[in-house]
Simulated scan of single mutants.
Amino acid sequence: TTLGDGDAFEAVLEVPADSLSHGMQALSPGNGAFRESQGHTIEDFEIIRVVGVGGSGRVIQAYHKPSGQFRAVKVMSKARLFQQEQRLQRVITEKRIMARLRHPFVVSLHWAFQTSTHLFLVLDFCGGGELFFHMLQRGRFEECDAMFYFCEILLGVEYLHSQQVLYRDLKPENCLLDDDGHIRLTDFGLSKDNLTQSALFTSFVGTAGYLSPEMVARQ
């Protein structure tokens, strides 16, 4: 989807104002979950195009005018989030986790802010797209390329574990390539943080096509 000149963020995911009565306190500016980012507003961004659509919103490629850099902006409807408590909590968890992650192979969160109807996560823009796209285009990777991507993914996951983060949704669609062709892990909506050595999670989450046999068998 390509947006025309002058289109605003509010037009990307339009939400009636009267649909926000439930759950507004969960994401009010004062509670710390999504504060207004100091010095940053949606007017600082020029929309380029929609690059992805997910269960909780859309991802927009946008030009950040003050810095002259392209960013990926995840735009989420509060009305849609408030319809399902689990979805809302996952967004809050994703923001909390990403706010403290800094690694060459993990997408960085730069700012998070909100309007009366939407939440915004401003992320690194990865111009290379999804690893999944390149797998489809090439059919299969040469061994040296597969080793290259595997090692970068492994280093990214190792870093997440060092930060007590359990990823839980590793798949080619969540492995982006930056402008230099390096892996950047993204989408932490299913992740868990504050892990301990003895932590045991029994919830059944992930993407069906990538679940391990042990998960499917509930072992």
Rank of each mutant, 00 (worst) to 15 (best):
D187Y: 07
Q84R: 15
S21E: 15
V15C: 05
Y63I: 02
F132H: 10
E10H: 13
V205Q: 03
V165Q: 06
N31I: 07
L123E: 00
A112N: 00
D178A: 01
L185T: 06
G55M: 00
E143R: 09
A33N: 07
V216D: 03
D145Q: 15
F148Q: 06
F70I: 13
I153Y: 00
L123D: 07
F113R: 01
L3D: 02
R96L: 06
H182W: 03
R102T: 13
Y149S: 05
Y63P: 06
G23L: 04
V75L: 07
T207K: 03
I47M: 04
G52P: 04
D187H: 02
V157G: 07
R100F: 08
L155Q: 10
P213F: 04
Y167Q: 02
R218F: 14
E152S: 03
K78A: 01
V75W: 08
S28I: 10
A62C: 01
D44C: 11
V165G: 04
A146T: 00
L88V: 05
R80M: 12
L101P: 03
V15G: 07
R102C: 13
T1N: 15
G23W: 04
Q69P: 11
D169K: 02
S191D: 05
L185I: 09
S203H: 11
E36K: 14
A72V: 09
D124M: 12
F201R: 13
G129Y: 08
Q163H: 04
R71K: 11
Q89K: 15
S116E: 15
A217E: 13
G206W: 07
I48H: 14
T93Y: 00
M147C: 15
G57E: 03
V157F: 01
L109N: 03
L177Y: 01
Q61N: 09
V216G: 08
A199S: 15
L109K: 01
M98H: 00
M98G: 07
E130M: 02
A62S: 07
H110S: 10
V59Y: 08
D169S: 07
L88C: 04
M215P: 09
S67C: 11
G55N: 09
R71W: 10
E43V: 09
F34C: 05
E214H: 00
W111A: 04
P104F: 03
F201W: 08
M76W: 05
C144L: 15
Y149E: 09
D44A: 05
A79K: 07
S198I: 07
S56Y: 14
E46S: 14
G129K: 01
R58L: 13
Q137R: 15
L101M: 10
T93K: 12
G52D: 04
H64E: 14
C126M: 01
L109M: 09
Q219P: 09
K95R: 14
H161V: 02
R80Y: 12
S37Y: 13
A26I: 05
S56D: 09
L27T: 11
D169A: 08
A79H: 01
Y210F: 11
F9D: 03
L190H: 07
D7M: 15
S162M: 06
